[in-house]
Protein backbone atom coordinates (compact mmCIF):
# COMPACT_ATOMS: atom_id res chain seq x y z
CA UNK A 1 0.00 0.00 0.00
CA UNK A 2 1.06 3.60 -0.54
CA UNK A 3 3.11 5.30 2.14
CA UNK A 4 1.47 7.81 4.53
CA UNK A 5 1.65 11.38 3.31
CA UNK A 6 0.88 14.64 5.03
CA UNK A 7 -2.27 16.46 3.80
CA UNK A 8 -0.07 19.15 2.20
CA UNK A 9 1.56 16.59 -0.05
CA UNK A 10 -1.77 15.51 -1.48
CA UNK A 11 -3.01 17.42 -4.50
CA UNK A 12 -6.14 15.39 -5.23
CA UNK A 13 -8.00 13.67 -2.41
CA UNK A 14 -10.88 11.38 -3.31
CA UNK A 15 -12.99 9.93 -0.53
CA UNK A 16 -15.92 7.51 -0.68
CA UNK A 17 -16.52 8.19 -4.37
CA UNK A 18 -19.66 6.57 -5.75
CA UNK A 19 -20.78 7.10 -9.31
CA UNK A 20 -23.51 5.24 -11.17
CA UNK A 21 -24.55 5.08 -14.80
CA UNK A 22 -28.14 3.95 -14.57
CA UNK A 23 -28.08 1.08 -12.10
CA UNK A 24 -24.46 0.13 -12.89
CA UNK A 25 -21.89 1.25 -10.32
CA UNK A 26 -18.84 2.71 -12.07
CA UNK A 27 -17.25 3.63 -8.73
CA UNK A 28 -18.43 2.08 -5.50
CA UNK A 29 -16.60 3.73 -2.64
CA UNK A 30 -13.23 4.72 -4.09
CA UNK A 31 -10.52 6.43 -2.01
CA UNK A 32 -7.52 7.84 -3.89
CA UNK A 33 -4.74 10.25 -2.89
CA UNK A 34 -2.77 11.81 -5.73
CA UNK A 35 0.47 13.32 -4.41
CA UNK A 36 1.94 16.63 -5.55
CA UNK A 37 4.85 16.68 -7.92
CA UNK A 38 4.73 13.04 -9.00
CA UNK A 39 3.35 10.94 -11.80
CA UNK A 40 0.38 8.90 -10.63
CA UNK A 41 -0.99 6.23 -12.93
CA UNK A 42 -4.58 5.05 -12.69
CA UNK A 43 -4.71 1.66 -14.35
CA UNK A 44 -7.31 -0.92 -15.03
CA UNK A 45 -9.03 -2.81 -17.82
CA UNK A 46 -11.09 -1.03 -20.47
CA UNK A 47 -14.49 0.09 -19.30
CA UNK A 48 -13.58 0.47 -15.63
CA UNK A 49 -14.29 4.21 -15.67
CA UNK A 50 -10.77 5.61 -15.83
CA UNK A 51 -11.79 8.46 -18.14
CA UNK A 52 -14.89 9.00 -16.01
CA UNK A 53 -12.59 9.46 -13.02
CA UNK A 54 -10.73 12.28 -14.81
CA UNK A 55 -14.03 13.94 -15.71
CA UNK A 56 -15.09 13.69 -12.07
CA UNK A 57 -11.82 15.28 -10.93
CA UNK A 58 -12.28 18.05 -13.52
CA UNK A 59 -15.85 18.70 -12.37
CA UNK A 60 -17.38 17.72 -15.70
CA UNK A 61 -19.35 14.97 -13.98
CA UNK A 62 -20.89 15.00 -10.51
CA UNK A 63 -20.52 12.00 -8.19
CA UNK A 64 -23.55 10.36 -6.61
CA UNK A 65 -21.76 10.54 -3.28
CA UNK A 66 -18.31 11.15 -1.88
CA UNK A 67 -15.94 14.10 -2.23
CA UNK A 68 -13.15 15.10 -4.56
CA UNK A 69 -10.76 17.79 -3.36
CA UNK A 70 -8.21 19.39 -5.66
CA UNK A 71 -5.63 21.59 -3.94
CA UNK A 72 -7.89 21.69 -0.89
CA UNK A 73 -11.01 22.75 -2.83
CA UNK A 74 -14.08 20.54 -2.94
CA UNK A 75 -14.60 20.45 -6.72
CA UNK A 76 -18.32 19.76 -6.64
CA UNK A 77 -19.12 22.39 -4.01
CA UNK A 78 -17.56 25.22 -6.05
CA UNK A 79 -19.55 27.86 -7.90
CA UNK A 80 -19.24 27.81 -11.70
CA UNK A 81 -16.86 30.78 -11.60
CA UNK A 82 -14.62 29.15 -8.98
CA UNK A 83 -14.70 25.84 -10.84
CA UNK A 84 -13.54 27.60 -14.02
CA UNK A 85 -10.80 29.32 -12.01
CA UNK A 86 -9.67 25.93 -10.72
CA UNK A 87 -9.73 24.47 -14.23
CA UNK A 88 -7.34 27.18 -15.36
CA UNK A 89 -4.83 25.50 -13.05
CA UNK A 90 -5.62 22.02 -14.41
CA UNK A 91 -4.60 20.83 -17.84
CA UNK A 92 -6.17 17.86 -19.53
CA UNK A 93 -4.89 15.85 -22.46
CA UNK A 94 -7.78 14.07 -24.14
CA UNK A 95 -7.33 10.75 -25.90
CA UNK A 96 -8.31 12.32 -29.23
CA UNK A 97 -6.31 15.49 -28.59
CA UNK A 98 -9.55 17.52 -28.78
CA UNK A 99 -7.86 20.21 -30.86
CA UNK A 100 -10.17 22.83 -32.34
CA UNK A 101 -10.23 21.75 -35.96
CA UNK A 102 -10.91 25.20 -37.41
CA UNK A 103 -7.77 26.68 -35.82
CA UNK A 104 -4.12 26.14 -36.74
CA UNK A 105 -1.64 24.51 -34.37
CA UNK A 106 -0.42 27.97 -33.31
CA UNK A 107 -3.94 29.25 -32.67
CA UNK A 108 -4.86 26.12 -30.72
CA UNK A 109 -1.97 26.61 -28.31
CA UNK A 110 -2.62 30.36 -28.16
CA UNK A 111 -6.31 29.78 -27.43
CA UNK A 112 -6.20 29.53 -23.62
CA UNK A 113 -3.75 32.45 -23.47
CA UNK A 114 -6.05 34.63 -25.54
CA UNK A 115 -9.08 33.57 -23.48
CA UNK A 116 -7.62 34.02 -20.02
CA UNK A 117 -4.82 36.56 -20.21
CA UNK A 118 -4.35 40.06 -21.53
CA UNK A 119 -0.87 39.44 -22.87
CA UNK A 120 0.29 41.30 -25.95
CA UNK A 121 0.29 39.54 -29.33
CA UNK A 122 4.09 39.38 -29.39
CA UNK A 123 4.22 37.87 -25.88
CA UNK A 124 1.59 35.28 -26.83
CA UNK A 125 3.61 34.42 -29.93
CA UNK A 126 6.75 33.89 -27.85
CA UNK A 127 4.94 31.78 -25.26
CA UNK A 128 3.25 29.63 -27.92
CA UNK A 129 6.55 28.98 -29.68
CA UNK A 130 8.20 28.08 -26.35
CA UNK A 131 5.41 25.61 -25.53
CA UNK A 132 5.58 24.10 -29.01
CA UNK A 133 9.37 23.86 -28.72
CA UNK A 134 8.90 21.89 -25.49
CA UNK A 135 6.91 19.25 -27.37
CA UNK A 136 9.18 19.40 -30.43
CA UNK A 137 6.62 20.90 -32.81
CA UNK A 138 7.67 24.54 -33.16
CA UNK A 139 8.18 23.91 -36.85
CA UNK A 140 4.60 22.70 -37.25
CA UNK A 141 2.93 25.82 -35.88
CA UNK A 142 1.33 26.75 -39.20
CA UNK A 143 -0.23 23.34 -39.83
CA UNK A 144 -3.91 22.61 -39.36
CA UNK A 145 -5.02 19.74 -37.06
CA UNK A 146 -6.09 17.69 -40.09
CA UNK A 147 -2.47 17.70 -41.29
CA UNK A 148 -1.14 16.16 -38.06
CA UNK A 149 -0.60 12.50 -37.21
CA UNK A 150 -2.29 11.14 -34.07
CA UNK A 151 0.92 11.42 -32.04
CA UNK A 152 1.59 14.98 -33.24
CA UNK A 153 -2.00 16.00 -32.40
CA UNK A 154 -1.49 14.75 -28.84
CA UNK A 155 1.76 16.67 -28.54
CA UNK A 156 0.05 19.86 -29.72
CA UNK A 157 -2.75 19.19 -27.24
CA UNK A 158 -0.07 18.77 -24.57
CA UNK A 159 1.47 22.12 -25.51
CA UNK A 160 -2.00 23.65 -25.20
CA UNK A 161 -2.58 21.94 -21.85
CA UNK A 162 0.60 23.51 -20.42
CA UNK A 163 0.00 26.93 -21.99
CA UNK A 164 -1.25 28.43 -18.72
CA UNK A 165 1.42 26.65 -16.62
CA UNK A 166 -1.06 24.50 -14.68
CA UNK A 167 -0.35 22.81 -11.35
CA UNK A 168 -1.48 19.44 -12.70
CA UNK A 169 -2.13 17.67 -15.98
CA UNK A 170 -4.50 14.77 -16.47
CA UNK A 171 -3.62 12.44 -19.33
CA UNK A 172 -6.40 10.29 -20.77
CA UNK A 173 -4.88 7.19 -22.38
CA UNK A 174 -1.91 9.13 -23.78
CA UNK A 175 -0.21 6.06 -25.26
CA UNK A 176 -3.21 4.35 -26.86
CA UNK A 177 -2.79 3.58 -30.55
CA UNK A 178 0.69 5.10 -30.90
CA UNK A 179 3.58 3.72 -32.91
CA UNK A 180 6.74 2.94 -30.88
CA UNK A 181 8.45 6.25 -31.76
CA UNK A 182 5.44 8.41 -30.90
CA UNK A 183 4.95 6.40 -27.73
CA UNK A 184 8.57 6.90 -26.73
CA UNK A 185 8.27 10.63 -27.34
CA UNK A 186 5.09 10.87 -25.27
CA UNK A 187 6.54 8.83 -22.40
CA UNK A 188 9.58 11.07 -22.30
CA UNK A 189 7.45 14.23 -22.51
CA UNK A 190 5.16 13.25 -19.64
CA UNK A 191 8.09 12.56 -17.35
CA UNK A 192 10.15 15.55 -18.48
CA UNK A 193 7.29 18.04 -18.14
CA UNK A 194 6.46 16.63 -14.73
CA UNK A 195 10.02 17.03 -13.48
CA UNK A 196 11.06 20.24 -15.26
CA UNK A 197 7.90 22.27 -14.69
CA UNK A 198 7.04 20.63 -11.33
CA UNK A 199 3.61 19.72 -12.65
CA UNK A 200 1.73 16.91 -10.95
CA UNK A 201 0.59 14.32 -13.47
CA UNK A 202 -2.30 11.88 -13.45
CA UNK A 203 -2.01 9.30 -16.21
CA UNK A 204 -4.98 7.11 -16.97
CA UNK A 205 -3.88 4.12 -19.00
CA UNK A 206 -4.13 0.42 -19.59
CA UNK A 207 -0.70 0.31 -21.23
CA UNK A 208 1.03 -1.40 -18.32
CA UNK A 209 4.66 -1.28 -19.47
CA UNK A 210 4.58 2.37 -20.53
CA UNK A 211 2.68 3.66 -17.52
CA UNK A 212 4.88 1.64 -15.10
CA UNK A 213 7.96 3.14 -16.73
CA UNK A 214 7.11 6.71 -15.73
CA UNK A 215 4.77 6.37 -12.75
CA UNK A 216 5.84 7.01 -9.17
CA UNK A 217 2.59 5.58 -7.87
CA UNK A 218 0.04 3.27 -9.43
CA UNK A 219 -3.60 2.74 -8.51
CA UNK A 220 -5.20 -0.35 -10.02
CA UNK A 221 -8.97 -0.12 -10.27
CA UNK A 222 -11.53 -2.69 -11.32
CA UNK A 223 -15.22 -3.29 -10.74
CA UNK A 224 -15.65 0.15 -9.23
CA UNK A 225 -13.00 -0.28 -6.52
CA UNK A 226 -9.31 0.30 -5.98
CA UNK A 227 -7.80 -3.17 -6.05
CA UNK A 228 -4.27 -2.18 -5.10
CA UNK A 229 -1.93 0.78 -5.02
CA UNK A 230 1.79 1.29 -4.65
CA UNK A 231 5.04 1.88 -6.50
CA UNK A 232 5.37 0.01 -9.82
CA UNK A 233 8.14 -2.27 -8.52
CA UNK A 234 6.18 -3.05 -5.37
CA UNK A 235 3.08 -4.03 -7.33
CA UNK A 236 5.07 -6.13 -9.78
CA UNK A 237 6.73 -8.10 -7.00
CA UNK A 238 4.16 -8.21 -4.25
CA UNK A 239 0.87 -7.44 -5.99
CA UNK A 240 -2.10 -9.74 -5.55
CA UNK A 241 -3.29 -12.36 -7.98
CA UNK A 242 -5.55 -9.96 -9.90
CA UNK A 243 -2.84 -7.29 -10.18
CA UNK A 244 -0.31 -9.88 -11.33
CA UNK A 245 -2.64 -11.02 -14.08
CA UNK A 246 -3.22 -7.44 -15.18
CA UNK A 247 0.42 -6.34 -15.04
CA UNK A 248 1.75 -9.46 -16.75
CA UNK A 249 -1.10 -9.63 -19.25
CA UNK A 250 -1.95 -13.26 -18.43
CA UNK A 251 -4.91 -14.57 -20.46
CA UNK A 252 -6.48 -16.49 -17.58
CA UNK A 253 -6.71 -15.91 -13.84
CA UNK A 254 -9.08 -14.05 -11.55
CA UNK A 255 -10.39 -12.46 -14.76
CA UNK A 256 -11.36 -15.65 -16.60
CA UNK A 257 -10.58 -16.26 -20.28
CA UNK A 258 -14.08 -17.59 -20.82
CA UNK A 259 -17.19 -15.48 -20.61
CA UNK A 260 -19.59 -17.20 -18.15
CA UNK A 261 -21.34 -20.00 -20.03
CA UNK A 262 -23.02 -23.37 -19.32
CA UNK A 263 -21.00 -26.58 -19.49
CA UNK A 264 -19.47 -27.09 -22.97
CA UNK A 265 -20.65 -30.72 -23.35
CA UNK A 266 -24.23 -29.90 -22.45
CA UNK A 267 -24.10 -26.87 -24.76
CA UNK A 268 -22.78 -28.95 -27.67
CA UNK A 269 -24.86 -32.10 -27.25
CA UNK A 270 -27.84 -30.96 -25.23
CA UNK A 271 -31.08 -29.40 -26.38
CA UNK A 272 -30.65 -26.04 -28.11
CA UNK A 273 -31.60 -23.08 -25.91
Amino acid sequence: MSPKRSPRDILVRIRGLKFYRGSRAIFDGVDIDIPRGGVTAIMGPSGTGKTTLLKLIGGQLTPDSGTIEVDGLNVHALSTRDLYRLRMRMGMLFQSGALLTDLSVFENVAYPLREHTRLSASMIRKLVLIKLEAVGLRGAHQLMPSQLSGGMARRVALARAIALDPMMIMYDEPFAGQDPISMGVLIQLVRRLNDAARISSVVVSHDVAEASQIADLIYVISDGRVIESGAPQQLREHGGEWTQQFIRGLPDGPVPFHYPAPDLASDLFGEPA
Partner: peptide, 14 residues
Protein backbone atom coordinates in the same frame (compact mmCIF):
# COMPACT_ATOMS: atom_id res chain seq x y z
CA UNK B 1 -17.87 13.47 -30.52
CA UNK B 2 -14.25 14.59 -30.86
CA UNK B 3 -14.24 16.00 -27.31
CA UNK B 4 -13.68 19.58 -28.50
CA UNK B 5 -16.54 20.81 -26.30
CA UNK B 6 -15.15 18.91 -23.29
CA UNK B 7 -11.74 20.34 -24.15
CA UNK B 8 -13.13 23.87 -24.01
CA UNK B 9 -14.74 23.16 -20.64
CA UNK B 10 -11.44 21.90 -19.28
CA UNK B 11 -9.75 25.05 -20.61
CA UNK B 12 -12.21 26.99 -18.42
CA UNK B 13 -14.10 28.23 -21.49
CA UNK B 14 -17.89 27.86 -21.44
Amino acid sequence: ATEQLSGLEMMAVN
